[in-house]
Nucleic acid binder design. Structure first.
Lengths: 197, 197, 197, 197
DNA sequence: TATGAATGAGAATTCATTCAT
DNA sequence: GATGAATGAATTCTCATTCAT
């Protein structure tokens, strides 16, 4: 019952237990939002006891924060891997349904999920601010002006809106759209908002 | 924050009480989501007893459904008022902070808020589908093909993402952006996604 | 909606309104018990406003008390009408389903329904005590001894048990039993418990 | 009132906690009926937290069902222990106040208590039907005819009426009657209703 | 390290009752 | 005399968290 995952969990491995909880939580928080997700659900799906959430993450909020932090690193790492100039292609790939990118989509989704805790909100905000600045920088030359940052934020918000709609609501044809279907429209959108992107 | 006691509520006016509850609920559900909003909060902010929610709307879900229904009419009415061709201007006006449009922004936000109840989800979905079709139709000629509908849905999702980010997270400069700041970027985006829109 | 009863209720007739409430309440309390019956149900079935229950009977308990009192008179009157010696026949007739006797069965049922209020319980107790004494007296000669009263109470309790089971639970063949089916068994029972009854 | 803390409850023993809840609930439901009993009362008397009721029995209805089920087994077991022919003696012993039989009287009382839930009602009905058939069979020869079943049901209903009256209402002399006082009258009643019983 | 037991706070909902018309 | 509006006190149930093993 505890090991319905491929890698047969070793018992009594704290680090691994922690990781499993984190993975499950990230997915659930992303999909259902903070309040609608119960710690018991998470623990059950992870195949461990609820009390471990308090143990490893102090509280539900602590767990959410850990999810957000890990999500942020993932997104950062992913962004760094990508060369300049092909934001649209990256987006299209990330948005389409390939299971490899589930984790990344979840990570992005977390950025629109609020926990209610103000300190955690700060994290989200600063992450989004930094993402939009990086995006703006990529579009141009040196440090971007506010107008460009605004455009970058509009692009970012749009992307998140698309992920949200695509993955949480089954709205056709968007939900079923593949990478190929999305590439051109997204490319147009990116070009329009951040010309040099 | 808007106008808590502007209209001096007459006591013992069922229709008005119902309306006040509906208004408060719509705002709260839009801002905080379904699960994070408690009926007691709504009743308190409305200045009436909680029991009246059951009385007038049967249940929390019933209240949410009523909010969604009323939001849908508002959005429909607004969309009908707008002539063809100026989607971007409309968006810019709607997205900027003018208090007149608070209700409309809330209405739109409700479209990304889930109650968990499957029947209500159907409502949301069909509304979004119909909005995207109308949007697609406006872009072109006769009944739109699926590719155009997809583009319309991308535009719709983007818009919702922007509203969500702009109003629930204080991310500068987006959150403070005025109609003038938004018009050009949005216009570019609309043009890119729905050329004739 | 208000007058689903044969006699077209005159509006604004306090005495009659009171009576209708009383009748409906007696039936409901008898059938469903005190706690399981809501004043709103009663008012609705009576076709009047709930507030009138407080008005005419002070409270739910007051209404129950009034029901019990009226039930007691009915039972008393009925008992007085019956000559000595034919208790079994009376029982059989009362227990069978003839609608004329619905009110009387309800009245009897009320005697096993508790309201929780101690003062009202006293009423019930003293009524039952007096009924059993009368029953005992009928069996014999002069003032009955305790053993005879005990037998009378056993008979009374049995009768109430039969009514309860027959009318609130659909247990075949008892629930469908007619006067003819019941007469002999009941007669045997009465004879056995109160030989001269 | 019986033995509140006689058995010194070990802490953190799920099976025992469950059992204590069940015992308390059975007594309360039997004495006060379903609606008049609150889960908080039960938990308090059991000395545990209310949430454990949901945990162990899902809901109040689930708890009631568990009570009824366990009551039915108890009654069945008791009935099986009794040889044929001495129903009256058994009754007399069961009805008298000996604390050993408190549980059994509660069990019987539960059979006249309704929860409102239709599925649970089915349980009660089928149990009563089977009891009356067994009773009828015991009276005679082979499979009993409907008339005999009717007589058995009358006896059963009478018994329940007597238990109800004896234990929930303090009506003298019935409530204080001892085994010896009851044996003869009950024996007469049983003989009259089920001659060979 | 992990578990199952237990708790307390808070959620939605129901209900008798009171108030204003 | 009667009504509909409104209230406050329960009631059941859920959930994050803590405790004991």
């Amino acid at each position: 019952m505890t090991d319905d995952i491929a890698v047969p969990r070793r018992r009594r491995d704290a680090a691994q237990t922690r990781q499993v909880l984190l993975d499950v939580a990230r997915h659930r928080f992303a999909r259902d939002g903070y309040t609608a997700t119960t710690v018991r659900d998470i623990a059950d799906e992870a195949g461990v006891n609820v009390a471990l959430i308090s143990r490893y993450f102090t509280s539900k909020e602590g767990l959410f924060e850990a999810c957000l932090t890990s999500a942020i690193s993932d997104v950062r790492r992913d962004a760094d891997d990508v060369g300049p100039g092909d934001v649209a292609h990256l987006l299209a790939r990330r948005l389409s349904g390939s299971p490899d990118d589930d984790r990344l989509r979840d990570a992005m989704l977390l950025l629109v999920r609020s926990s209610g805790d103000e300190r955690i909100e700060g994290l989200r905000r600063s992450m989004l601010r930094s993402m939009s600045e990086k995006l703006a920088a990529r579009a141009g030359h040196g440090t971007p002006d506010e107008a460009t940052v605004l455009r970058a934020q509009i692009l970012l918000a749009s992307t998140l809106g698309i992920i949200l709609m695509k993955s949480t609501l089954s709205l056709q044809p968007l939900s079923a759209a593949e990478e190929d279907d999305l590439r051109k429209p997204l490319s147009d959108m990116v070009q329009a908002l951040l010309p040099r992107g």
